[in-house]
Nucleic acid binder design. Structure first.
Length: 414
DNA sequence: TCTGGGGTCCTAGGACCC
DNA sequence: TCTGGGGTCCTAGGACCC
């Protein structure tokens, strides 16, 4: 069996370039929510030495100097282009696992030709304008490692089986292995382990003791024994959260209440889309940890619903009840999170209960979902809002919704 | 002035039970 | 002086991923 990992190159930055051919060879960076940090960079921007995750204000001089193009995150655009890429990949694979917005594992079809990787790269580029890299190997972990090499390979792909595996594992740094993060890398380095090959030379029991079962599976995968399953259909989420940082410090309880309602609405929408209900609503608030001179406070509360629900007012009421418990006057709040847990499938029995309680609830919910799907999020909302500018997200450099909004369709001058 | 959001899995340790 | 063993359940926190 052969696995392939297909990964979109500098995905967010590439999405921004698709409809902006003038930016083709220019450095482009994409920011996190609130235009806070740099989360994605084009190849040209990486070459200028900008570290991922750095706050925007720290690289302002560099941006001016090199005329770097800056974008707020346009998730609507990225998700739409991601879906198009995945639809193409599906036609190449016996099995497809969408691993993240810009990555997918494929189990290759038996009859695959040698130019499989080139076919994929060519098709995705022609049909979407997104460049991808392809790594191929006998396990998911090795395909992932091969992909890393493919990124620096001018051909854009790399096949693990094309090389001596001992040599490959010797060159593979321990920190570049999928599943080995910063902490484990530091720990292993202290033990004198620097390469993938050295990791595979440790005993199973030692690895399990120090890196848990997850680490042991990684070892087996490096040895060429598939130990991590493909997940073709994403399992239902066990926790769903909606959380945002405020662009300005929030002190007023009313503002926090509105934010709780807003994120409660978002989270309950995700819940309904996966056909689930939740039993617990957890809400947490915190001040800005980076401002050492501010008085710090953070707290959380969990509310159990009388009946598991996905009905927005139920979620919102619980979130606000929790908020009342943990809110303390006099702090500058930076972040609020609504986290839904105790997730169960929406079942007949529960639905009956729900309907018995008030059948109109169900109708209202369905109608709201339908209207918002047709006319856009937030067309109908549960709470009337005051001026929300104080806490809403900052997105000053947003690109158009080229592929999902008629008004934003790109025009070609003739 | 300005530091993201959304997930999963695993383990240790405490509470509680007989 | 001497203070068990085995089990379950829950939560917090730490590791990882993108």
């Amino acid at each position: 069996m052969r696995y392939a990992l297909v990964d979109c190159n500098t995905f967010y930055a590439s999405c921004e370039k698709v409809f902006r051919p003038d930016l083709r060879h220019k450095p482009v960076i994409v920011l996190s929510n609130n235009d806070g940090c740099v989360v994605a960079m084009s190849r040209e921007a990486k070459a200028l030495g900008i570290p991922r995750g750095i706050p925007l204000f720290k690289v302002e001089p560099l941006i001016r100097k090199h005329n770097i193009e800056v974008f707020s995150s346009n998730y609507t655009l990225y998700h739409d282009l991601s879906k198009r890429v995945m639809d193409i990949l599906r036609t190449f694979a016996a099995e497809l696992e969408i691993y993240s917005i810009d990555e997918a594992f494929l189990v290759l079809k038996g009859e695959d030709r040698d130019d499989f990787a080139e076919q994929i790269r060519g098709t995705v580029m022609t049909w979407t304008g997104i460049p991808v890299s392809v790594g191929i190997g006998p396990t998911k972990t090795l395909a992932k490692a091969a992909n890393k090499i493919a990124k620096d390979n001018p051909q854009g792909y790399y096949d693990f089986s094309s090389e001596n595996s001992r040599e490959f594992l010797t060159k593979l740094d321990i920190g570049d292995i999928w599943g080995i993060g910063r902490q484990y890398k530091a720990f292993l380095n202290r033990k004198g382990i620097f390469t993938a090959l050295q990791l595979t030379e440790q005993s199973d029991s030692w690895i399990k003791k120090n890196l848990t079962m997850v680490g042991l599976r990684t070892k087996w995968e490096l040895e060429g024994r598939p130990s991590i399953d493909m997940e073709m259909a994403p399992p239902p989420k066990k926790g769903i959260l909606s959380s945002k940082s405020f662009s300005y410090p929030v002190t007023d309880f009313i503002d926090l209440r509105e934010a709780a309602a807003d994120y409660g609405t978002t989270a309950s929408g995700k819940l309904r889309r996966q056909g689930s209900v939740c039993r617990y609503v957890n809400i947490s608030v915190s001040t800005n940890n980076f401002r050492k001179t501010d008085r710090q406070y953070s707290n959380a509360a969990t509310i159990e619903l009388a009946v598991p629900s996905s009905y927005p007012p139920d979620i919102i009421c619980a979130a606000q009840k929790g908020l009342e418990r943990i809110y303390r006057k006099g702090y500058k709040y930076k972040k609020i999170t609504v986290y839904l847990t105790g997730i169960e499938e929406e079942q007949r029995g529960q639905l009956d209960l729900f309907l018995k309680e008030d059948p109109r609830k169900y109708q209202v919910m369905k109608s709201i979902d339908k209207i918002n799907k047709k006319y856009g999020r937030n067309t109908l909302n549960c709470m009337s809002k005051r001026d929300t500018s104080r806490w809403q997200m900052k997105r000053e450099k947003l690109s158009p919704l080229y592929t999902t909004n008629w008004k934003d369709l790109p025009l070609i001058p003739l």
